[in-house]
């Protein structure tokens, strides 16, 4: 009979071990490192500055319908902020160095980038982070949200953030421009995160201006990206300790069909 009791003990021990292992550890996304040395500024870096101009007619302001959620509806009139044009200048264009950088590892900043959910919108709507850099997501709304990035290269995740809940900190391991971020609760909420392995990116301000600082001298391919009007590229030569100019221009008539149309491949073979 002793051994039947042993059987019971074995199962109990297994159960105990199982329950103790419950507090699983969080996995941390580690940036994939490029070959080459860690990049250090040498002192003869230059900058790229530019302005994004806009021709044609911008879409009229469109009021968001948010009656589904009382907390959002009580905020009053909210307008769609996908196209922000002022005095012929286009805001929220993401400009980044696409190619031409030396083979090197760029240091991951220790600062956090914040993505807030405020007024049933993402603030900011377009943002950039470096691979491995902390993205702090906060919920300032009086309602529950979920954050659902749909990347192609990075790992997809989908987490709720309840009202009153503390920040969620996330990292992206791979370079990817740009990852749509959605809230399934509020279908109109949309943000784009540009993940880059280097710090050479910028966002156009309300006056359409942007600047990328501290680039080593060289020839680069620069890309400007707007969620509605698409991407444009430009070759830019940066001289030592000099400012290079790179202006982009978008036309209101060139907008591609709206919608976030992506077709998921039926079968991904490695």
């Amino acid at each position: 009979m002793f051994s039947v009791r042993m059987l019971a003990l074995i199962f109990l021990t297994a159960a105990l071990a199982l329950s103790l292992s419950c507090g699983g550890k969080k996995e941390e996304a580690t940036p994939s490192s490029n070959a080459g040395p860690v990049w250090k500024p040498t002192g003869d870096e230059g900058n790229i500055t530019g302005v994004i101009s806009f021709t044609g007619t911008a879409p009229a302001p469109r009021k968001m319908e948010m009656e589904n959620d009382a907390a959002c509806a009580k905020l009053g009139d909210q307008f769609l902020d996908d196209v922000l044009v002022k005095d012929g200048k286009l805001q929220n264009v993401f400009v980044y160095v696409k190619s031409g950088l030396p083979q090197a590892n760029f240091e991951t900043p220790s600062t956090e980038v914040t993505l807030d959910q405020k007024g049933c919108k993402y603030v900011p709507r377009i943002l950039g982070v470096q691979t491995g850099q902390a993205l702090k997501i906060t919920n300032s709304d009086d309602t529950n949200h979920n954050i659902h990035p749909t990347p192609k290269l990075n790992r997809e995740w989908n987490e709720s953030q309840l009202k009153g809940q503390g920040p969620i900190v996330k990292k992206f391991a791979k370079q990817e421009t740009l990852i749509p971020v959605k809230c399934n609760m509020h279908s109109w909420m949309l943000a784009y995160v540009g993940v880059l392995s280097h710090p050479f990116y910028a966002l156009s301000a309300a006056d359409g201006a942007f600047s990328i600082k501290g680039l080593p001298p060289g020839e680069y391919e620069l890309e400007a990206w707007h969620e509605k009007y698409g991407a444009k590229t430009l070759k830019v030569k940066v001289d030592a300790k000099a400012d290079a100019k790179a202006d982009f221009s978008y036309d209101g008539a060139s907008a591609y069909v709206p919608g976030s149309l992506k077709v998921q491949p039926a079968l991904v073979l490695p």
Partner: peptide, 8 residues
């Protein structure tokens, strides 16, 4: 689903 078309 979440703005992505599902094939099939």
């Amino acid at each position: 689903v979440s703005g992505t078309l599902i094939p099939g």
